[in-house]
Amino acid sequence: MITPKLPLRIGLYQNGGSRLLGDDRHYNLTRSLLDKGYAVSVIRSDSRLGPVLDGAWLLLGHFGKDGPLPAMGNGNGVKLYFRDIEGLETSQILDAVEEVRGETELPDPGGWKPWFPVIDYNRCTNCMQCLSFCLFDVYGVHEEKIQVQNESNCKTDCPACSRVCPEVAILFPKYKSGPINGDVVRQEDIQREAMKVDISALLGGDLYGSLRQRQTEARQRFSTERDESRALLERKKCLRKLKKDFDIPDEVLMSLPSAGDIQERAERAKAKLAARQERSQTVRDSRPAPSEDDWGI
């Protein structure tokens, strides 16, 4: 999950005490604020913000000499700021917004292209192939269920994990084409996905064991052949195939961990698993033997 601090929200306040913005000005201002990363609530006659839960709000409007109407229902730690934008150009309003944001010390909105996988749990079978495949710790498990836990770890424009999902259950809403972008999954998509690389089968079911085995084999091969240029060519060929088949950007291929890193990671995972198994064994052993009451005797 990315920064938990909520950004400043903007209310374009056009209620009783605030006169209406002109249509074009309203549109230009809303568009500019959105493009800078601010959420905008357009509050019209006979309306209000609804149940505001928390965070800081800046209400912009033409309040006139009477000022804004008193804010209602703004408890629960909600902070409200008001700025009269009468006579201000859009750029001046944006400056005023930045000024308030500075006062609140809230984060600068934007700055991160939100690229990360989204799981369609209607399709997901919890097979964990995505977890095994992703080397950037985007996925995690909570209560034995696969989850996306570290969105910002995901490599921008890389849809590789969705390519290995046998159930077409992983979406990237900003991907160019379906069904990865969330478009309806059709029968032909399912058939195509069934032909994809099955990571478990490919690696014999034990990802890290297989990686270690491959590394050992590679070491042996290189030590006998000593043909580094051939190895490099093979690697390039393999990367080209990955790039073509999985639509993986160069940046991701370049940042893939080395074989050594993978091995280290495997050792860590193995140690963690062993510790967990030991803990659960200890818990089981420390439980008192069931009494007659427990058995309902």
Partner: peptide, 21 residues
Amino acid sequence: TFEAVPDLCEMSARRDPALKR
């Protein structure tokens, strides 16, 4: 009356409580 947000994906990643509202 409407609400306009810069990016639903970004809000989802942030677990923004506005989505619950």
